[in-house]
Design a protein around this nucleic acid. Structure first.
Lengths: 146, 146
DNA sequence: GTTATAATTGAAATTGAATTTCAATATCAA
DNA sequence: TTGATATTGAAATTCAATTTCAATTATAAC
């Protein structure tokens, strides 16, 4: 947590920005939840800490957190953008059930390695990736389909 | 092409829908381009064939094409949705340059295999996946960054 | 401290792609 | 032919994402 804050502070400083009271509250709220929040979700959480914070600030701070690699955005349902922790977390994939919407997070060093190798073939310098595997989760694939 | 049309026709029939003149024009226009089109792109193409076709019909037909696995949607820039062929095409990945926007399509049977294996561990039944690798293309990684 | 400069904020407005509505047509089955 | 249903295109709507703007606050220079 303290770590994430100093990363953010360093990032802001480099950009000539300040770690304001609002930004700190928003960052802490984000770090404090393991959920994959939407801007609105985070806004609601933050609101409890400090009534006066607005949507715009949450939105903008989330954007800064992505730029600083503390957070990353993802889109599980094709509608709203969600955010998840990136700092201190391995790159992972989402296995998303197209029926019930549940998702599983998974990691595989071998897949990572192959992705790097693939990119190398194209002299492509990887910074990140987004892998979403779509299908049916255990429960939903058991159930008879209608 | 003829193939894709019969796939679409069969799909529509199963759903109690018809292969109308408009839908056929739209499908053919889509099949006829190798570009990753937006609904607007396709609308413009289709317009040349038949003036009177509207955005809504293109949008709805594209949706049907996705349902029938002739097409699949993708989002390269985080803004507009684009559509690419799926029927008769291997699952592939997109290496997207975050600087110039160019993208490369790539395939890797080994990555495919590992994804399947990964899913199996969770008893997850894969129907498709979307893998986007973000980074810098050959040209952009050469250039000095500002 | 005072003043100039720049960053920050929250409310509200705007944007723009995606989607739906609706009335008019067209199509099919009996 | 007639009734039921699907289809269409224009326009309207939705809604998340983003920007605007005037007010406020922090920072730096003096």
């Amino acid at each position: 947590m303290a770590d994430a804050i100093s990363v953010f502070r360093a990032f802001l400083k480099k950009k000539g920005l300040k770690l304001t009271r609002q930004r700190e509250i928003i960052l802490k709220a984000f770090i404090g939840t393991e959920k994959h929040v939407t801007t609105d979700d985070l806004y609601e959480i933050v609101k409890k800490k400090k009534q006066s914070i607005g949507h715009a600030t949450v939105f903008r701070t989330l954007k800064l957190m992505c730029e600083s690699d503390l957070a990353t955005s993802l889109n599980l349902d094709g509608k709203v953008t969600r955010f998840e922790h990136k700092y201190g977390h391995e790159q992972h994939y989402h296995l998303v059930c197209t029926k019930c919407g549940k998702f599983i997070e998974a990691v595989d060093p071998e897949i990572e390695r192959l992705q790097q190798a693939l990119a190398k073939r194209f002299s492509f310098k990887v910074t990140s990736h987004k892998l979403r595997i779509l299908g049916l989760c255990k429960e939903c694939s058991r159930k008879k389909r209608r």
